[in-house]
Design a binder for these strands. Structure first.
Length: 552
RNA sequence: UGGGGCGUCGUCUAACGGUAGGACACGGGACUUUGAAUCCCGCGGUGGUGGUUCGAUUCCACCCGCCCCAGCCA
């Protein structure tokens, strides 16, 4: 299946308009990358992978007031983690400032750019409106010599910030506002993270981006739909200077996802105002957050494959993303047993001092994952929600008089329950086991509907488990404007501080945290805050839960 | 109301002018030592009106709806 950009590329290749595909992923280092960027990254890096060529990582660092070194490093880390390699092609728009400056002088010499002394307010006022043409600047007809002189003095720092700009001389009556003598350069005294104070004039996006593309020999410059109106300006600049190559811009629809905000401003606000714990909070749709949450990069790549690339504004259901996460984790996550909310289970007819070991599989989807041993005794813990005093008809788990299988161990029948006399809370569940069911088998062929997970009291390891839900309870927080915070889910984060996990869950490997499936509960991964004496796990995502639907 | 874009199952996305297909979601069933996974089956769509054509999602006209643009942000 081909998307429209791939069709364009195939035509270009066939027609000989280019011999290889050179793309670029051009983030501005003013925030962290998120799942929406992943769509662009997969597209830009995927195209040359498919058709031959390369993709550059280019930082669009033309606004020193907003950009930071921290973001540059974070972005590199995230792109690499996603699985893409820019090789030696790491670039910065700021590397081209000198050459861009020369192109600006070329425009001035051709009478196609002028230095404008109007204030910001005057420029705005004279731009006109959507329905009325703008008014030409009184400085529009300065001589080439004067413009050159003024522009050079702008560069030297002779004028205060905001006092003058360089503008393209195009058409103040254009129905496309971007063509009404757009600003090309402005004066900014801020220190740039890379060029420091060597420059005090900085090129605007529309001037810098197309030239960056041309300098790098980019063939297909792919961006999002909101830049469609800028394409005439992209072309104008390249058509009016002598660029080293001639790239073309194509636009696709950015990703939107239900229950998620993806605008950089809103994400930055969540971080700044402390609604989440940083850019890598596991509830964040940032790549750093998803990584910490335990989402494998492969799942993100698959997701980007499946959502496709088109020009239709769309909102992808988060369920598709969740499906991709489960799909990958199901094949790769080691199974272990963990009880998040423990209640004692005592097997009355099992000897007090006996300990058995059972061999269980590490991943039924992957025989190569092998098996491990789990300890079993008279005293266990099970999930509190797996016992019900007053069970509904279709409840397959434990209740007085009912039999269930303890995964991998024995069948047990519930004989009673001990409760706190004050609160009525269940303190302990009592049962008797069937010695003939060792390993969870039923020699007599009887069928048990329920199989529950458990941990053994003496060997279980206490752990903290951090449970994350969707950050927003409303489907379209992005559409809620500035009030999007009101759509936040107050229960998006909770801790299970008295969880118990089997020892295999905390076995460390040298290659970083491994995705785990806590049997019947979901996928989890050890958090970076985790310590050997205080293991912490993040819930990546729950298993599909048909029972939850039956209950409803 | 100027300009630019976009309308296909609930959602996302395909279909040289020739049987509207896939994925997710949803519903049902089989299987199951995870109420998971897996496997079957089902559900459902071309914004509207005309026109061209043997035949239109595709071409044309008009209409309707949605998105983007008035930063010295990107």
């Amino acid at each position: 299946m081909k998307n429209f950009i791939e069709k364009i590329i195939e035509e270009d290749l066939t027609a000989g308009r280019c011999s290889e595909v050179i793309t670029r992923f051009p983030p501005e280092p003013n925030g962290y990358l998120h799942i929406g960027h992943a769509k662009s990254i997969c597209l830009n890096f995927g195209l040359p992978r498919r058709y031959g060529g390369r993709c550059h990582l280019r930082f669009d660092d033309t606004n020193p007031e907003k950009e930071e070194e921290e973001f540059i490093e974070a972005i590199k880390r995230d792109v690499a983690w996603l699985g893409f390699d820019w090789g030696s092609h790491l670039y910065f728009a700021s590397d081209y400032f000198e050459r861009m400056y020369a192109f600006a002088e070329e425009l001035i010499e051709k009478g196609l750019a002028f230095v404008c002394d109007q204030t910001l307010e005057e420029i705005r006022r004279d731009r006109g409106t959507l329905t009325e043409p703008g008014k030409e600047s009184p400085y529009r007809n300065r001589s080439v010599e004067e413009n050159l002189d003024l522009f050079r003095r702008m560069r030297k720092g002779e004028f205060p910030e905001g006092s003058r700009v360089l503008r393209a001389k195009i058409d103040m009556a254009s129905p496309n506002l971007n063509m009404r003598d757009p600003v090309l350069y402005r004066i900014r005294r801020a220190a740039h993270p890379r060029t420091g104070t060597t420059w005090c004039i900085y090129p605007m996006y529309d001037f810098a981006h197309c030239l960056g593309d041309a300098i790098e020999g980019v063939t297909h410059s792919i961006c999002t739909l909101e830049f469609e109106d800028h394409r005439p300006l992209y072309d104008w600049v390249l058509d009016n200077v002598t660029p080293p190559s001639r790239p073309y811009q194509y636009e696709f629809a950015r990703l939107n996802m239900t229950y998620t905000v993806l605008s950089k401003r809103k994400l930055a606000r969540l971080v700044r105002e402390g609604h989440v714990n940083g850019w890598d909070d596991p509830r964040m749709p940032t790549l750093a957050g998803l990584r910490r949450r335990g989402v494998p990069p492969e799942a993100i790549r698959r997701f980007c494959d499946r959502i496709g690339v088109a020009k239709t504004n769309s909102v992808v259901e988060i369920e598709l993303f969740e499906h991709c996460i489960r799909e990958v984790l199901n094949k790769t996550a080691r199974r272990v047993m963990a009880v998040l909310d423990p209640v004692k289970l005592t097997i009355e007819n099992y000897p007090e001092d006996r300990i058995e070991e059972f061999e269980v599989e590490n991943n039924p989807e992957d025989a190569a994952a092998g098996t491990r041993k789990v300890a079993f005794s008279r005293n266990l813990f099970i999930e509190r929600e797996d016992f019900l005093e007053d069970p509904p008809k279709k409840f397959f788990r434990l209740a007085v008089g009912r039999e269930v299988r303890l995964k991998g161990a024995y069948l047990v029948t519930c004989t009673g329950v001990k409760k706190d006399p004050e609160t009525g809370e269940v303190k302990e569940v009592l049962c008797r086991y069937d010695p003939a069911s060792r390993g969870g088998n039923t020699p007599d062929g009887r069928r048990v509907k329920g199989t529950i997970h458990w941990v053994e009291e003496k060997t279980a390891v206490p752990a903290e488990i951090r449970v994350y839900e969707r950050l927003f309870r409303i489907e379209n927080p992005e559409g809620a404007g500035e009030e999007f915070l009101e759509g936040m889910n107050e229960n998006s984060f909770s801790r299970k501080c008295s969880a118990l996990v089997e020892p295999a869950a905390v076995q460390r490997t040298s290659s970083g945290p491994m995705p785990l499936q806590f049997l019947r509960m979901g996928y989890f991964i050890e958090d970076i805050d985790s310590k050997p004496n205080h293991p912490i796990f993040n819930k990546t995502i729950g298993l599909r839960d048909t029972w939850a639907k039956v209950k409803r």
